[in-house]
């Protein structure tokens, strides 16, 4: 995983709530067996409309998505995170994320930032007024900064540490291999098994 320390970029205001993962990446894209090449599937249905915000010339090259509440609901597809990253997004800001989506994003180094809706409103207004406005997402300081806006955000220390260092979860867990083996020894015999030996 790529480390995330701080990022500054232009934003895309997505004034919609309850953007589910079927909207972020429709099911037919899920047939791919790789982690890349999902950028054209991002918000595919909405992008057919020329007026959709992502299609606007002034939003090209933007890297911060500012979305409405309950972003990433629905299916657990990690493809939604890959699609956002493949497209070039580094961070998503919303007042509320669906749990599985948030977990997936943090595992892939896409920073999901929870800010109060009134700050999200302020960011929307700023970037709609001035598409060139830069938004900084600073994980070290746990702060989002933009013209006239400074807002701190919460992220648990453990996730932050993993992101800042770009650490691979599996290697971290395997350091506790002894604990896992000990737990396995004590598991009751009645637990289900998929293979019969």
């Amino acid at each position: 995983m790529e480390a995330f320390t701080t990022h500054t970029g232009r934003a895309v205001p997505l004034r919609r709530s309850n953007v589910d993962t079927d909207q972020i990446i429709p099911a037919h894209w899920l047939k791919k067996v790789t982690r890349d090449g999902f950028e054209d599937g991002l918000f595919e249905a909405w992008r057919k409309d020329d007026t959709f915000v992502l299609n606007r010339p002034e939003r090209q090259g933007a890297t911060v998505l500012v979305a409405g509440p309950d972003f990433g609901t629905g299916s657990s597809r990690e493809h939604a995170v890959w699609a956002l990253q493949n497209y070039g997004f580094k961070a998503v800001i919303s007042a509320r994320f669906a749990d599985i989506f948030r977990g997936n994003s943090l595992k892939n180094g896409l920073l999901t930032v929870v800010l109060e809706q009134k700050i999200v409103d302020a960011l929307w207004e700023l970037t709609e007024r001035d598409p060139e406005a830069a938004i900084t997402v600073d994980l070290e300081a746990r702060e989002v900064r933009a013209e006239g806006i400074t807002a701190s955000f919460e992220l648990d220390e453990n996730s932050r540490w993993r992101l800042l260092n770009g650490l691979d979860d599996i290697s971290l867990t395997l350091r506790d291999e002894d604990d896992i083996a000990a737990f396995e020894k004590a598991r009751p015999a009645h637990k289900p098994r998929t293979l019969t030996s």
């Binding site: 657990s76 997936n104 395997l174």
Partner: peptide
């Protein structure tokens, strides 16, 4: 729990998951 693909890999490799 429903999990994402990174977690699928994690469980395949370790049979565990770090979870809050």
């Amino acid at each position: 729990f429903g999990i994402g693909t990174s977690q699928v890999e994690h469980v395949l490799a370790t049979q565990t998951l770090p979870m809050a």
